[in-house]
Design a protein around this nucleic acid. Structure first.
Lengths: 201, 201
DNA sequence: ATTTTATTTAACCATTTGGTTAACAAAAGT
DNA sequence: ACTTTTGTTAACCAAATGGTTAAATAAAAT
């Protein structure tokens, strides 16, 4: 029964267009063209641009959030956690390179979309991870550091190079291929860097 | 002679609207309303939305670029350079909190706008800074590190927390005021963190 | 086979949007 | 005083855009 092939093609095309152009820059006609169908079909399956956008956005979150939750929640030594995060997340983003910019852009456009979702998704895991870091500081296992700052550092160094690719490529004078190699190397570099920063010698 | 008060009001309003909504989300009518003038004046002074946008974008770059150039070019010890960058840049962005997201968003929309400008602006300074880092590694003054990765780390940790504010606020469960304090603390935290990561004990 | 339901299309519609115009007002030259 | 230039406005326009509709076609159900 045609197994919703059209609906699927629409979502693919919409993902492509929304992620590269954002909600405001996206055009329903372009999505229809890319899906190879009539514009009316978009509304038949998704009712409105807003609804279609939400479907795309939810999918985007569904790709990015689980890995973050998994790593943040897993019971394991902090250094392993850091290595798993940088390696896992940089790999993930490499496969979906438009996602971080898209999510950040849309979240800045409307900061409320996910407030509650995020709080519930990560609130708990974050608390545990904060306790873990505080405990290690107290035990003298790592240098004194505010858990929030450490977490910010991990996330920033993992994600920013994707978001600011055009700027960093210019500042560092790299072509696409070289920049790609730098990103690849970051899977381990970032973790090493962080661990060097916090470990007691 | 009326000293272009209107033109000035237009640019202010345009800056406000473009920086919060981006090129695609901005509306000429909203800019006119915010400037308290007739929409036709926008075209009288700036000819088109594109031209007005370019004026705003150039101003944005003019705010962000000089400090980066100054720091990157100044002849001083690496650790001072790092401290000056994180402190100076985080302060600067705090006064223009919409700028990084705006610039990144628009640069991703059209990566070519600044390619050459950036190359010429920073190419030279980057080369020198790279040499400086390589020399220190060779002399055993800091741990081995690829200069590109170090520079990426500095920039990422300084700027990303502004760009991803909505996400990080949720992940870290902070309200605006607390988040603002975290950012403030980063002026010194980021530099300390980096220096700990690379200095030989 | 026939009725009903789901899918698809082309044409259409109302609104929004960037941009223009013609007329008017205020300064500036002369 | 008057002519020209500059600044400003309201009304207007064409194109683009999200969304609708009515009719046609295909698939399922009876």
């Amino acid at each position: 029964m045609a197994d919703n092939l059209t609906e699927q093609k629409i979502l693919e095309a919409a993902t492509n267009v929304f992620q590269t152009k954002g909600m405001d820059g996206a055009r329903m006609q372009e999505i229809a063209d890319k899906a190879g169908i009539n514009k009316a079909m978009l509304h038949y399956y998704y009712r409105s641009k807003q609804k279609l956008f939400e479907a795309v956005f939810k999918t985007a979150i569904a790709i990015m959030a689980p890995k973050l939750r998994e790593i943040i929640n897993k019971e394991e030594p902090l250094f392993d956690k850091i290595r798993n995060f940088t390696n896992g997340y940089i790999s993930l983003i490499n496969q979906h390179s438009y996602l971080p910019t898209f999510i950040i852009q849309e979240l800045n456009r409307n900061p409320n979309i996910l407030k509650d979702t995020f709080n519930k998704e990560f609130g708990n895991g974050f608390m545990k991870m904060r306790a873990q870091i505080e405990q290690m500081v107290k035990n003298g296992e790592i240098r004194p550091i505010a858990p929030e700052q450490l977490i910010m550092n991990v996330i920033s160094m993992s994600i920013f190079p994707f978001v600011a690719k055009p700027i960093l490529k210019s500042v560092l004078q790299k072509e696409d291929k070289d920049y790609q190699q730098l990103l690849e190397a970051r899977k381990t570099h970032v973790a090493d860097f962080i661990i060097n920063a916090i470990k007691i010698q």
